[in-house]
Design a binder for these strands. Structure first.
Lengths: 189, 189
DNA sequence: GAAAAAACTTAAGGTATCTTAAGAAGCGAA
DNA sequence: TTCGCTTCTTAAGATACCTTAAGTTTTTTC
């Protein structure tokens, strides 16, 4: 909980009142390993902060292949932001890869909070901007770099995560088959 | 100009006062074919609405290959949103593909306007959300679809643009070589 | 309207990545 | 500790896409 407040305070400064109002709308949620937070057809109606654990979002393409879009551990936000922002049904699975504890902020309360505590509006604007930047980075990467370069980039950017998720999920994040990632690792070792 | 106002009014409702304040900070800018709005090393400090013409943003990868990230015609916004939002220097070229007339909103004025006319803050929040959704869509496409499917998607989504830009630019948007796109078109015709 | 420049096509040979299939290794549950 | 499930590896054959290079068509410029 203190961790969460510190996290918010990195980007904005909340006073006592703001903090109290924020605290009052938080919801704690626990997920077991492999449990889903969101499934296709559902809507994302909360912002979700990982207090402890590890999660990912992914979808199935027309050949039922998994593609991982986001990975997160402690102090990351995880969501189907597409669904949250557009208010459309999700196409994603958002799943715990370990036993995970989340702090959730329901959209309805959050939008009220934006008015009373403009810092929070500012905070999430920054988060959404960062999300945009991250996705754009990924488009650029996928057009410029080959699979092994993307793997190296991934290892740099996600050093803490790499150890905690199975390799086939990393492959599905990079956009290659697990077999090919295995081949690349051998080739470069 | 009326066009621009209608465009804004699609998403938010501005009163007389708001409209006047908005109008007072607009800047018109004309670009000749092939002229650049932004080059690598510069910073994006305006929002840019295309009144007439056609533009694209692209970057060069380490092999000096062009990759087109955004295409736009009349009534689209064009920018290096990454640079605008993060305030970092751009890695992009933003270039006119035809003689183009823009309406620009400088960041400094716009941020003041956000306070006086909150509808504009709302408006650009929606635009940035849409931009996020579009980029995410693209990541999903590039992982799920082969080149020809991406080409068909592109033609559906950008019917009006397809006619106006050279095919090698479409190829660089899809992430394939011009030769390969040419081959695909023949194969499926 | 001719010359120059830009864009598009074709084709051969090459490379990155996929598919399938099988076995090996690691790991959680009883 | 062992069984069963999940994950990882290996390898052969297939395919999507790239590179190079040359020729053709279209567009621009003077």
């Amino acid at each position: 909980m203190q961790l969460f407040i510190n996290h918010i305070n990195k980007d904005v400064t909340l006073d006592e009142v703001g903090l109290k109002k924020l605290s009052s709308i938080l919801v704690f949620k626990e997920l077991n390993k492999k449990e889903f937070l969101i499934k296709p057809g559902e809507a994302a109606n909360t912002m979700n902060f990982i207090v402890q654990g590890c999660m990912r979002s992914y979808y199935l393409d027309k050949n039922a292949q998994e593609h991982t879009l986001q990975l997160g551990i402690e102090q990351w936000w995880i969501n189907d932001l597409y669904s949250y922002l557009s208010r459309k049904k999700s196409r994603m699975y958002v799943q715990a890869l370990e036993k995970t504890l989340l702090i959730q902020i329901p959209r309805i309360e959050l939008e009220k909070l934006y008015i009373e505590v403009p810092e929070m509006s500012h905070f999430f604007r920054i988060k959404i901007q960062n999300a945009y930047v991250a996705v754009q980075e990924r488009v650029i990467d996928s057009m410029s770099d080959d699979a092994y370069e993307r793997y190296e980039n991934f290892r740099k950017a996600y050093r803490d995560i790499e150890q905690r998720v199975p390799q086939y999920i990393i492959a599905s994040y990079l956009g290659v088959t697990p077999e090919f990632l295995s081949y690349l690792r051998k080739k470069h070792s």
